[in-house]
Amino acid sequence: MKPINQVKLEFDSRSANEGFARSAAACFAAQLDPTLEELGDIKTAVSEAVTNAIVHAYPECIGRVQLRLRLFEDNTLELSVKDWGVGISDPRQAREPLFTTGGAERSGMGFTIMESFTDSLRLRSTPGKGTTVTMRKRLALRERGR
């Protein structure tokens, strides 16, 4: 399936950009005429993935984070967050509820939330090379031209 629309954004791994990334995703999704709940789901999923790139991928420095948003004909929105950071040695363990390497400032619920707020999640990571999280969410078809 080919996307019918796509944007790519790249930004520094600074926490101030978390709000930017989820707003950008919400703006891109607006062309699908989403419900408030769907918009909240999209913002939450993007916020989790981008925060992970900022907190975990680059613990000691500022790196690059890429957000790619794609739209498909069947009203599916794809949210993809990529970093070139430390990577994850055991991706299966990382996805388990409550698993965290972040100490008391984190809850280990990020992947659980991303999974429950979208329809599918794919995690690709190579230690030392980086991580890509790709989520898909099919939005309810609504009547156009209201």
């Binding site: 989820r22 909240g40 913002k43 939450t44 916020s47 989790e48 925060t51 008391a104 400032e105 984190r106 809850s107 619920m109 990020g110 939330i113």
Partner: peptide
């Protein structure tokens, strides 16, 4: 107006 897992912690 918005909260994610950082709020849970």
């Amino acid at each position: 107006s918005f909260m994610d897992s950082s709020g849970i912690a």
